[in-house]
């Protein structure tokens, strides 16, 4: 009874919180509410017996994504930026920016479509909501029970944990492509050639011994936790994604606290680290074709070993990618080479 009540409150809270995220005037507050939303989603997944994705959502969905949002909001509003980009922009643009930034403080947003658009929208959106609501309430008993099939084939999958078996064996092709998405995202972000907005953070955190102490304390713990999650993934909730998320968060923490300088996008060490997971996965997937005749069809004898190797490299790449999406500072053209040599050593 009590647990049913808890589920009902949680289920009701989620759409309301989403509504608040979208209507709060202050953008910072919206992002904080978004992080709370992500944590509640993770909680509801824990309630739904999905600890794997609850872990991933808490780390990636709420944590890293939330930090990305905060970082961007901070970059968009309020702070006077370094004049790094001033040279290649027109005067008019600079003036317009001046006008916008003249009122620093709360980053607010009230721009909406006119009222009649909003009113006209409510009808189809409500209709969609009703249709979808009816659809999910009236789900029939499905004719196919994939859960049963997955558990029947768990023996042959090489691992003992259902989700890992699906991710790295039954539907490993999806996972392969998904790692490709991560790599693609990094390339796409780098192609934008963003200015160095985050340079300030390292300076800001100078003279904060408490933070540095905490990060020093957390570093070994997070490495142990990441390793544990990776190792545990074969038998119980955990695996490359959760481990990569924890280690990626550690990377973000190290850079934001100023203990490690942000890596540069053209550091070849970083590039290799980012690509190695995808490359090893693709390479092993293709190589086993020679033995078994199909892409990603591991030979039965070595399935477990191959999956562990793939997961190990995936963890490295996922962690680096998540950190890179957040903190990589692309080199400015003029100073690129100098800093490059300077920071070569940080990469390890």
């Amino acid at each position: 009874m009590l647990s049913l009540f808890f589920d009902a409150v949680l289920a009701l809270a989620l759409p309301l919180l989403a509504w608040r995220v979208l209507t709060t005037r202050d953008l910072y507050r919206a992002v904080i509410l978004f992080i709370a939303f992500g944590l509640l989603v993770a909680l509801s997944w824990a309630r739904l017996d999905a600890p794997d994705i609850a872990l991933a959502e808490a780390a990636i969905g709420a944590g890293l994504t939330g930090a990305l949002f905060l970082n961007t909001v901070g970059g968009l509003v309020g702070r006077k930026r370094s004049p790094s980009r001033e040279s290649d922009e027109s005067r008019e643009v600079a003036e317009r920016r001046e006008a916008i930034q003249s009122s620093p403080g709360e980053p607010v947003d009230e721009v909406m479509r006119p009222w009649w658009v909003r009113l006209a929208l409510t009808v189809p959106i409500l209709a969609l909501g009703l249709a979808l609501g009816w659809a999910v309430v009236s789900f029939p008993e499905p004719a196919i029970d994939l859960a049963q099939q997955a558990s029947d084939n768990l023996e042959a999958s090489g691992v003992d944990h259902g989700v890992t078996a699906v991710l790295l064996n039954f539907r490993s092709y999806d996972t392969l492509l998904e790692i490709g998405v991560l790599l693609l995202a990094v390339v796409a972000v780098w192609s934008l050639d963003l200015g160095r907005v985050r340079g300030g953070q390292a300076a800001l955190s100078k003279g904060l011994p408490v933070l540095h102490g905490l990060v020093r304390l957390l570093t070994p713990i997070m490495i142990i936790v990441g390793g544990y999650l990776l190792w545990a993934g074969a038998k119980q909730p955990g695996g490359a994604f959760q481990a990569g998320a924890v280690l990626g968060a550690l990377g973000v923490l190290l850079v934001l606290s100023g203990l490690v300088r942000p890596p540069l996008s053209d550091g070849s060490g970083l590039r290799i680290g980012l690509a190695v997971g995808f490359a090893v996965f693709l390479g092993i997937g293709t190589a086993v074709m020679l033995a078994t005749g199909e892409l990603l069809n591991y030979p039965p004898a070595s399935t477990y070993g191959l999956i562990i190797i793939i997961e190990l490299f995936l963890t490295v790449s996922i962690a680096l990618t998540l950190a890179a999406l957040f903190v990589t500072a692309p080199p400015r053209k003029e100073q690129g080479s100098k800093e490059h040599s300077e920071e070569k050593g940080e990469e390890s």
């Binding site: 904060l208 408490v210 933070l211 102490g213 905490l214 304390l217 957390l218």
Partner: peptide, 16 residues
């Protein structure tokens, strides 16, 4: 223990 450490640090950062 971890919450204690991170909570204290966060409070310190916010206050600073």
């Amino acid at each position: 223990l971890l919450v204690l450490a991170s909570g204290a640090t966060a409070a310190h950062l916010v206050a600073t």
